[in-house]
Design a protein around this nucleic acid. Sequence first.
DNA 1: ATTTATATACCTACCGGTAAGTACACCTAT
DNA 2: ATAGGTGTACTTACCGGTAGGTATATAAAT
Lengths: 205, 205
Amino acid sequence: MTEEATAGAQANQAVRERLLAEGLRLFTSKGYAGTTVREIVEAAGVTKPVLYYYFNSKEGIYLELMEGAYTIFGERMRELVGKSGSARDRMEILCLGIFDAFLEFIDVARLIYAIYFGPAQGAPQFEHDQAFDWMLDAVRTVVAEGIASGEFRPGDPADMTWVIIGCLNVCMEEQLCRNDPRINRDDTKRMLALILDGISRGDAK
Amino acid sequence: MTEEATAGAQANQAVRERLLAEGLRLFTSKGYAGTTVREIVEAAGVTKPVLYYYFNSKEGIYLELMEGAYTIFGERMRELVGKSGSARDRMEILCLGIFDAFLEFIDVARLIYAIYFGPAQGAPQFEHDQAFDWMLDAVRTVVAEGIASGEFRPGDPADMTWVIIGCLNVCMEEQLCRNDPRINRDDTKRMLALILDGISRGDAK
DNA sequence: ATTTATATACCTACCGGTAAGTACACCTAT
DNA sequence: ATAGGTGTACTTACCGGTAGGTATATAAAT
């Protein structure tokens, strides 16, 4: 493969990536129906048939963005699961890891949330619950192990799981919905500690 | 006023209410940009200029729906605030009351959430944070009084508030996003109790 | 020469909005 | 009692603009 071939392949990818980046930005800020193909291609600096060349349709680029978003979060979840240590430590690593991933890929996250809560608006169907369910399963696993090991109190693992998820969820949502979020990572850590203090065994303060 | 006049006034309201009801349904399920004036009026059984007659524009009906939604929740919040009893009892009444209001007006709630998380999509600007902020202030007030009275532990009232809000929030969101919510009112009550057990003074179990 | 990537020009269908008209109720003047 | 005027509620037909998508030509890469 010559250097020319590499440059050509890279030019391909550059156009494609530009379209995806602009598509992500615009779908996120305007929604599926509110975003036109014209504005995506104009932002990417190409003409309209180029989008159809690479993605076949408006739906095509949208679905590719969705698949990419879920892939990113799935990989990050896998990295965060399977750590070792006390249940409390692992919970902290897991939740703050999720929070950090959220911030790192906040545009992607915003798109996922927008789809999850937002109206369908003619967008093609996609399995929407996956990212949330991954999170739920991971937290539930750590809770169950904490109860089994005696580190957390006996109780309903589902309740504990949902309280933790609720806390993490509201912290993440705050990052999405405000230019000046009222909750940061340290707040999240403290709030998590408050919950874990409450469900830990040997809590006699 | 004759009976004919009453019937005429009622016919007015019937058309107007039909447009609002169909508008709510469609904006909620399809979003602002994804909903056309044509489908609203068709669903309401009138012609397009009728919508412009009553609401001046597509924006007009949307804004009227949004104002109505916030009015409903604001009134319900006022009813729930100002109850008396222990901080714990009041917190339970407040949170479960919010949850109940949410279920009662779930279409309205769905629209508010869709707007809050969903993309702007060309919809007219509206102050979106109000319902959430009402909730936050109400919970914060009860938390602060619980700490002051010694019922809750000394601690950061903001942390406690947000943990409670996060829990309530995720329970409500679950009602929105699934045909078969995994959390019901009793679950919500139990989870709230788990948190309140954890932050209560005298918790030595 | 062939394949791939891109541009120009165009298509049909649909968008929000509006002008003009109609039906009806009510009021006032004759 | 009747005619004319006014206002409200609604319809039909239409407007200019734009949506997603495509045929064809051209440029670039191999």
